[in-house]
Amino acid sequence: MTEPLVTLENLTVAFDDRPAVDHVNLNVHRGDIITIIGPNGAGKTTLIKAILGIQKATAGKVHLDRQMVIGYVPQHLVLESTLPLNVERFMALSGRSSEECKAALARTGVQHLLKASVHHLSGGERQRLLLARALARKPDLLVLDEPAQGVDINGQASLYELIRQLRDELNCGVLMISHDLHLVMAATDKVICLNQHVCCSGYPADISHDPAFIETFGHQVAESVAVYHHHHNHRHDLHGDVVRSQQPRPTEGHEECSGHAHH
């Protein structure tokens, strides 16, 4: 197996001694799509900010591949109304050539907005602009914080599909936070359910049966998610993962922390 792009070792981020992220271990490889789900305040955003170097780790380690280019799609693009800015200029600030910027905009389907003011974009257009911005950098790792926010339901499905295609085109790793459980389950390789600590992780089909998952999200969500059965493509096998079996495997497969009581 190739070296992981990101390795977290017992990563802990605490605010006033209260851990927002508690002893998280995680590997992200090229070609992975890993989705972090979890209730509000579970530390999802804090976790990715620690990976991005925006948030300092209290304890534990974040190892990043040194050569790696990270494309970051933040949760929001809130632009001060006093700052005049159009899409073209915003893209150019990435420092990439105009051709690369236009190609990235075309790839996310917003090339027609080149001259539009960023202030006038809808929520979905902004998300696609931010994605194009990350794409123009030709990232090895794409990190997305709730990429489908403000996108309508049809748009959400196509956005996740686009992310999956981009993973194939760029052969990059993808790490994202999402609330759109049913869509995520269909579009992702591995799900990590975070509630400060990793409460369970694994393939989508498994996780929906996990008691820890059901405890966090309730029966209804778990049942609705289970319907969206994830069909494995064979990418995972190439990366050394055995085809999913009923047996939980110690590292890459279905993991579960020993219980919630002591956390």
């Binding site: 900010k49 991005l52 170097g53 925006i54 990270i70 970051y72 933040p74 693009l77 632009l79 001060e80 700052l83 800015l85 915003f90 600030l93 990435s94 420092g95 911005r133 950098r137 990190v143």
Partner: peptide, 17 residues
Amino acid sequence: WRGLLMSTIHPELARVE
């Protein structure tokens, strides 16, 4: 200019870049 402007528009995105 580019760095100043970028860190004004989105400080976190700027840091990642």
